[in-house]
Design a protein around this nucleic acid. Sequence first.
DNA 1: TTTTCCATGTAAGTCGTTACATGATTGC
DNA 2: GCAATCATGTAACGACTTACATGGAAAA
Lengths: 186, 186
Amino acid sequence: MSLPHAILTALLEKPSSGLELTRRFDRSIGYFWSATHQQIYRELGKLEADGLIRALPSEQPARGQKKSYEVLHAGRAELARWTAASQDPKPHRDTLLLRLRAAAVVGTAGLEADLRRHLQLHERQLAEYQEIEQRDFPPGRDGTEDRLRHLVLRAGIDLETFWTQWLSRALTEFDGLPDGEPTRPA
Amino acid sequence: MSLPHAILTALLEKPSSGLELTRRFDRSIGYFWSATHQQIYRELGKLEADGLIRALPSEQPARGQKKSYEVLHAGRAELARWTAASQDPKPHRDTLLLRLRAAAVVGTAGLEADLRRHLQLHERQLAEYQEIEQRDFPPGRDGTEDRLRHLVLRAGIDLETFWTQWLSRALTEFDGLPDGEPTRPA
DNA sequence: TTTTCCATGTAAGTCGTTACATGATTGC
DNA sequence: GCAATCATGTAACGACTTACATGGAAAA
């Protein structure tokens, strides 16, 4: 139940149309809350029906026509309520760790190449975050909003740093391992 | 599409009944792939129908009776195939980071308490992982299987370490912040 | 004018969550 | 016997994914 609040946040930062939101969910907010355009359009409909947002009156709502939304007072209140509410952390789900555990039973054949690929992807993401940091958060002048957003970006940077380090370590471990099944060969 | 493979891995490590699997998904494998008993029973049914696992013939399959499963040859093959297949990393979803970004717009009131609570939870999880490491992976004698499983545990430890550090940092930042809305007061 | 892209949607199916149901076993 | 607990399920719903559909604008 976080997608509507992600959208409210994005719309408060800047009123947008569905497609503009979709683009921003490919970067920025999408770095820690992804969504497809189908999800976004459906949720925009619900939020409008619930009176939390409204279409900007300047544009006519025809199919194929741009339609921009802004957050209403009730929407801002709901976002503030949700932000302050206590929430339990969701349990992790990580396919790569699962595959490593499976490899301990059925063998590591074929896994190393994908680990290398993931390492590259994480290195690329890390570089992207670091560019954003240099561009948007130069040292010295941080306002209140900036300090919070910088904190979020730091989480992204530190997470990608963790993954690159962990994957590098995993790959060096792999160099000393046999490829096949470690136990009970079929 | 990872739950069946998580179950196959667990069953290869040790043939089990539905409830035993459920217990193990509360620890161990569940640390990076959670699942409820409903999911597990449904998936066991599918896996059996697909011929990847079978109920141990020693036990009679009555409702309310224990029923243990073991992995068949086809199941092991499918798990090996899946483990070696190239897979793209899933996009992140993190509610806490989203809430921080929302707080940059609607204010940080009420958030700090929950950050403290999350910090405690992550500290507790970290301590649990470190106990497991000391108990199951004493320095020196690592086999091939152990090296892989240790690697997975290290990922858990490093991730929890990251979260505790990041949350601590976030809380010190909060000390210097006003509680209300940073911009556009309602 | 046909194609391509932009922009907004619909529909179907899978996965996960929450709530409930049922039979067997054990302790009182 | 009765209640509590163990063990295995069913049902309904919501969230997310994948594939497809529609209309308008711009370009070839």
